[in-house]
Design a protein around this nucleic acid. Sequence first.
DNA 1: TTGACTTCCATAAAATCCCATGATATTCCA
DNA 2: TGGAATATCATGGGATTTTATGGAAGTCAA
Lengths: 154, 154
Amino acid sequence: MALFLSTYVNKVDKKGRVSVPAKFRAVLASKGFDSVVLLPTINGDAIDACGMDVMERLLEKIGGFDPLSEDRESFADALMSDAVELPIDGDGRIMVPLELLENAGIEGQCAFVGRGDSFQIWQPEAFEIRKKQARARAVQKRASSLGGEGGAND
Amino acid sequence: MALFLSTYVNKVDKKGRVSVPAKFRAVLASKGFDSVVLLPTINGDAIDACGMDVMERLLEKIGGFDPLSEDRESFADALMSDAVELPIDGDGRIMVPLELLENAGIEGQCAFVGRGDSFQIWQPEAFEIRKKQARARAVQKRASSLGGEGGAND
DNA sequence: TTGACTTCCATAAAATCCCATGATATTCCA
DNA sequence: TGGAATATCATGGGATTTTATGGAAGTCAA
């Protein structure tokens, strides 16, 4: 399997550890990674997660080292400074930095949400709300490509 | 590839010593370095930091310019003459020259800010301000330059 | 010898590793 | 097919290691 699919809700323990769903670990491992990269979503609702390959692609897009480019500076600051690479421990867990958890309103439990190339980590109820909105929008737009959407989580 | 990611705030002690974050030391070590190169940022807000490899790439870039042009002169002056190579001691610390610290307004604490290929050292509050600006700019630009790619963002 | 820089050592906090457990899923065979 | 034997997984807790930081002792040059 090569895609992050489905949604899993796991516990955040007292030490701040969370199990990465085994299926997601398998996807990462298939790409040769034993770590995950996390960064806040653009609008701050949740946490984006991906393998280092995605970060490298982003950095390439930003451009090589060009110290005079203001755009490069902005991207570098906004993306790289908030991103963290977390090693996955022997039991399949990571330690999510407190700041990211607080930022996403996560406490006690979190939802791992597959998105294909990447996944996200949400406060479970916030994700449910967000999903309803997304579904409503999809229905409204009669998006034919998402016709059967949602089957993985019910 | 290992990248400098995330932001760490560490103390500058009375002797001027600062711990380089372990994650950053690991990146440097993976490239075979036991030292860091520091130089003032172009606009003087902070300190740029990287491994010797990045300096070599920069020198190549400069070398491509006409040796008589003013550009070459100013690049060489700005980048190479102010740069210092600092050894990382047995406890993972460096001694940042006073001039660089003062120039960046650093005292007591400093923020190590990952930028992928390189990192920067900031006075913590100055960086927070800068980051807000950078993020606003990145959001604004995102649609046109990074539109849709990577799947890492919401 | 004084001052500046390096090793070296001590410590508290934090991160990481290791093992145990219960729950769920999977395999295997009569 | 049923159901026991076996794996896998998420989770808890303790032991061990790493990290950041402070201070003392050793080096070297002016």
